[in-house]
Every structure is written in C-alpha cells, then in structure tokens.
Computed example of a mutant assay.
Amino acid sequence: MGQNTLMDTDFHFPSQKSVYKGKVREVYTLGNDILVMVATDRLSAFDVVMPKGIPYKGQILNQIATQMMQATEDIVPNWLMATPDPNVAIGKACDPFKVEMVIRGYLSGHAAREYKAGKRMLCGEPMPEGMQENDKFPEPIITPATKAEKGDHDEDISKEDILKRGIVSQADYEVLEKYTKALFQRGTEIAAKRGLILVDTKYEFGKTKDGEIVLIDEIHTPDSSRYFYADGYEERQAKGEAQKQLSKEFVRQWLISNGFQGLEGQTVPKMGDDYIESVSERYIELYESITGEDFIKADVSNIHERIGINVSNYLNSLP
C-alpha cells in the first residue's frame, strides 16, 4: 500500500534555484519568480511527520485549496497561477510573512485546551467567562502564531508583540487582519452551504516582488481548518457532547489515546494498514463534504513521473 503514496520528491525543473521541504509540502523555486508547490501524502500532527503516508491526501489538500483560492480571489488576491497536476499548485514567488493568521469562531482545539487550563486571554484576545468547549465566540478572534523553524512548535503571539518585535509592520498587519476576517466570512458562508460550520482556520500571506500582499499556501483544508457538521450542533452543545467534526483532529485524538502528543521521549504509535486506509477514507469524506463534489482518485501508479510530466508541460507552455 505504501508504494502508492507520495512521501517525498526529487525534481529538477528547468531554471530551478532551490527546494524547501516543509512538513507536508515541498516547494521548488524557479527562475522568473515562479514557485512549484507539491502536496505530498505526508501526515503531520503535533508538528511531527508520521512514518507512513495517507493515500490521496496530497491530492485532496491541493484540490480543496485550489477551489477555495478560486472562490475567494474576488476579495483577496492570491499567489496561484495554475494547478497542472492533482498534487501541484504553481504560482508567484512571495516573501512570506513570518506569522500564521489563525482565526477562531468557536472555543475549540488549542483555544479550548488553554481555556480549560484557566486562561481567559489568548494572543491578547479575551475569551468570555462561562463558555463551554465548542461554544461560539461573540465575534471571531484572531490569534496569530509565529511560524516555527523546522522541528519547532509554532507559538502563540499577540498583535501587540508582532508589532513591537517588528515581525510585521503596522500597515501590513492591518491588511492581514482585514483579509483574514474577509476570508473567514467567505469560508463560513461556503461551509454553511454544505451543511458545515467553519470553526477555526489559519491563513498565510506573502508579499510579491511588486509589494502586493497575497494569500499563499493552503486555505480551508482539513489540515488548516476545523469544521463541524451544522446538523445536530445545537443539540450536542446542549447535552455537552463532543461535536461531530471534519478536520485532522481525529488523528490527533487517536495519537493522544495511544500515548503520543509530540512530547520529548514519546514514540509515534504504529499505524497499521487498516488505520491508514480509514484515515484516507476520512480525508475523502472531508473532500466531498467541503467541496460538495465527488472525489476522483488520480492515477497513482507512478505519482512522481506523472507530476514531472504535468509540471514540465505547463512550464513549457508559459511565454
């Protein structure tokens, strides 16, 4: 089964200058300020990459992100030029901002864990007293995180600290804030049409060579966002039950129940083929729920070769 997953790549595209390998994506920088971003099937949780890949995961993330970029390009400019292969996005090279813009509409995940620990401020944003896990905030809150260097955990940071430390200028940060709110509003509307609630998500931005701030990386995917099913949300909250959700939180919960939270000295539990198959099926369910379309599996008999041909054909077609 493992042979049909894309765990890493080793391409040599024309005019290639450098390669950056993230937890899940591999980014090739070419001359003329073009980036080729390959979404692998690697699975990362608690900032640790799991030993085995998840079939079709890269395709799923790439195709959701592409659709969502296209569905928001009227309100926020983005880096994307083309998606010549199910696992590949090609776009404009940008200088990324060193913060992730996390926005939360509900008290879930990391925010809920902090709240349970007694905190009522997150990244300088107040969280009202008397909330229970998965309750809706009166207004969405922006809780940025500094982007970790390889291997480190992302860290919460307040707007005040971002400006004080000069990580982002005041003028640029105001644009990031405005774009984050607009994207979350649109994402919420798209989700509602599919019977989903967009709970929280993160956006990443960069600046093009012309100084334009654009949306980069993935958007509204189950790796960067948390969704609940709208149907039954109120009843589950009233009974204090866990929400039925669409995100990779189910992987985190499985890891926690098997004694792993990415802490020092902990070992990643073994994922059997059946479990990996079930994760792949959950990702396909996520895709179909989020996009409202059937998932069409790409040919994975030789993913590496397929990507190489598709990307080369696209690059050759450029003026």
Rank of each mutant, 00 (worst) to 15 (best):
P269F: 05
D223P: 11
Y275H: 07
E249F: 06
G240Y: 06
G272F: 10
R226I: 11
L263N: 13
Y227E: 01
N258R: 10
A238E: 13
P269Q: 03
D231N: 07
E288W: 05
G232F: 02
I290P: 10
Y283N: 07
S280L: 00
G265F: 11
L246G: 10
D223W: 07
D223C: 10
A230S: 13
Q237E: 07
S224E: 08
E241A: 12
E249G: 08
G232Y: 08
E288L: 11
Y287E: 01
F228Q: 02
Y227S: 04
S225L: 10
S225I: 10
Q261H: 13
F228D: 04
A242R: 15
T267F: 09
Q253H: 15
F260N: 02
D273M: 02
Q261F: 05
A242E: 15
P222L: 00
V279D: 02
F260L: 04
S289T: 10
V251G: 00
E235I: 09
K239P: 03
L246I: 15
E234I: 14
S280Y: 00
K248T: 00
Q237Y: 10
Y287C: 05
Q253L: 14
Q253P: 10
A238I: 05
L246N: 13
L286W: 12
S289Y: 06
I284A: 01
E241V: 08
E235C: 06
Y283T: 08
G259M: 08
F228L: 07
T291M: 04
D273F: 04
K270C: 12
Q237F: 13
K239Y: 03
E264L: 15
A242K: 15
M271W: 00
S278T: 08
S289Q: 11
E241G: 04
Q261A: 11
Q237P: 09
K270I: 15
F250Y: 11
Y233T: 06
K244L: 09
E249D: 13
S224Q: 11
Y283K: 10
S278V: 04
E234A: 14
E288K: 05
Y227H: 01
R282M: 09
Y275N: 02
Q261W: 01
S280Q: 04
Y227Q: 00
K239F: 01
Q261L: 06
S257P: 05
E249T: 09
T267R: 14
I290T: 10
Q266L: 01
E281P: 08
E234D: 15
Q253C: 12
E264Q: 14
G292I: 13
Q253E: 15
Q261T: 15
I256Q: 13
L263I: 06
R252E: 02
Y283W: 12
S289K: 14
K248C: 02
Y287P: 00
